[in-house]
Design a protein around this nucleic acid. Structure first.
Lengths: 343, 343
DNA sequence: GAAAAAATCCGAAACGTTTCGGAAAAGATA
DNA sequence: TATCTTTTCCGAAACGTTTCGGATTTTTTC
């Protein structure tokens, strides 16, 4: 375990000069710089991160805090986030701390504790709520963070997001353009910011098409196959007007919708058109549906690099404008949409 | 961000005494101890982990290093390990660092780098190989670690394991006791220690029953449904003697085996008996098979607590004998085994 | 050769915590 | 009250790194 002292002793330099050479200070001669770097490599020197953090305030470690829930092993977002973020941080020589909270533990004291230990340089926040207490808390604490998503209007923190309002508008207006007016939206768990803005985009498209918004056509909850199936059964079981088209928040919901429609003896797209947003989670391919599914596509895995870029930028004190990014999505028309039947 | 200095100034004590009070030194008066603890709580004091690590050598952080692979999001072991370990460490006020290596990155330099930064108190090792270089490396580095499994004979490091050799013996001899002699073993990826010892248990049971070991009846690879299916098709497609029973390394393989046998028009257990080891991964229930599957059961999730106990014990310098634990498994007979047909 | 300017280097202090080796205060005894 | 013993407290130093504010060395100019 080599230290600066070891290198300094060997090269007959002060530890100050060794430190300055390793950190490329301008007033170190090129000759000294090379000698020091070679010796450091030869001695397999790594700066002691604790010492460095104590002095410079930087440890090279960042955290992700997620709540424990029963279904955590099946949560595609969680798995993707953990694997993707960890790989990105590892690739930058940073360490990724994963903290899983007990199921009903209040979140802010957890952040307070982690911040209080002064170990982490910043946090990634995923799944933001419409009124997410974490954001104000971390801003007040003065610690770097980046949000996967956006909350509110006056956004003064780093984020990476896609245009969820617009993609829901595009999916819905694709259906209205084919004559559909009775369109269901299967959305996520309410209170999440992306869920809220997707509903806004859906409603805007209905308004633009002069269609009425019917409350029973907007259903939310965990976005999995089971809910896709049960929501669809519910939509076609009541006395209320039945949808001729369904917008699904993700491809897992769409899988459940396809299954339910088949069980009900309804055909896609002849009887009911279906569109979805596709995060491209690994276990599901929209193109593998029959009929193939029309989607807005934004691979979740493309989030991790810009998120990590923004967070490291925030840690380094880069200007906020460079730390707020919008990712693109692609509209891909396949075979799951037909004109509304004139019934 | 309160420090010892703040508390000391407020209570008119030295920082030494504050530190000693907070750490329950015996020569601090009870009155002083309480005053200090109350003030620390009132000021929301958390010891600076970097400072602590620098002095005491302990950060309260431990690491898990896993290689990136394409299927990481579907890897039940990985997901379980990450969620389970993280929750255990969080519950103990420790921080869990997850480091995902690039796909073909050599492993030892990664450990060297992490150790060199002097941030982590120890490591959890999962999925040990028969000749696992990590173990000797970490022993030489003098850093605490715990292994999920065992390697070799002279085991002088902390571990938590189950008796894989014995469970494979039990599953196989359950079949030999019912007259089966031509028994297949669908195992994991060779070179892993549990894979090696399970094969040993299987062979021992065959020997004890006077049955011949046929090499084509031992198949290995990723233990998923796809391989369960393809291995089974292969076993029943060649000219070599076909098995009358199959031992599966996990329940996912067994799912694939059931599917393949159904496709081949063979019945469980009338035509082919099937047994498996059940880690109780959340997405699969052995009892939900039809016919219900006979298993040795050892829930993977029961590993995390003892693993973490052993690692924290190792970090605290507890005697090795208390840090080597064997977990139990249960033999559960259900309906997937019948007597061998006298054909 | 002397003085000034530029280049290179370094001592001291800081960061926040822990602990060794006393020092000081309090209590007990004659 | 003085002395001895016990209890409580604390100054100094350490941990490894970074950087401020010089100090020293080398180079340039006259």
């Amino acid at each position: 375990m080599a230290t600066l002292k070891d290198i300094a002793r060997t090269l007959d330099l002060s530890i100050t000069q060794v430190s300055r050479a390793l950190n490329d200070h301008s007033d170190v001669s090129e000759e000294t710089r090379l000698r020091v770097k070679e010796m450091a490599q030869a001695m397999n020197y790594h700066p002691n991160a604790s010492a460095r953090k104590l002095v410079s305030g930087r440890s090279g470690m960042v955290g992700l805090v997620v709540p424990q829930h029963r279904n955590i092993g099946q949560d595609g977002i969680f798995i993707e986030a953990v694997a993707g973020l960890s790989a990105q941080f590892s690739g930058r020589g940073m360490q990724f701390v994963l903290h899983i909270m007990a199921e009903h533990e209040p979140v802010l004291p957890v952040y307070q504790r982690l911040i209080g230990k002064a170990m982490l340089d910043g946090f990634v926040l995923i799944d933001p709520l419409d009124h997410d207490p974490r954001i104000d808390f971390l801003k007040k604490a003065g610690i770097a963070f980046v949000v996967h998503g956006r909350v509110g209007k006056a956004i003064d923190y780093p984020y990476f997001d896609i245009e969820n309002e617009q993609l829901a508008y595009d999916l819905t207006s694709h259906l209205t353009a084919r004559g559909h007016r009775c369109i269901a939206l299967l959305n996520g768990i309410s209170g999440r910011s992306y869920v809220t803005v997707r509903k806004q985009g859906y409603c805007r498209a209905l308004r633009d098409a002069g269609a009425e918004e019917l409350p029973h056509l907007h259903l939310g909850g965990e976005m999995d196959e089971a809910n896709g199936l049960t929501h669809t059964i519910r939509l076609f079981s009541g006395d209320a007007p039945r949808p001729t088209a369904i917008v699904c928040g993700n491809v897992r919901l769409a899988r459940g919708v396809y299954q339910a429609l088949a069980a009900l003896g309804l055909r896609v797209p002849t009887d009911v058109s279906v569109v979805a947003h596709d995060d491209e989670l690994p276990s599901l391919r929209a193109s593998a549906f029959f009929p193939a599914l029309t989607v807005t596509k934004a691979p979740l895995r493309d989030s991790w690099e810009p998120l990590v870029d923004c967070l490291t930028g925030a840690i380094e004190g880069k200007p906020l404008a460079t730390l707020q990014r919008i990712g693109s999505y692609t509209f891909i028309e396949r075979n799951s949409v037909a004109d509304a039947a004139m019934a």
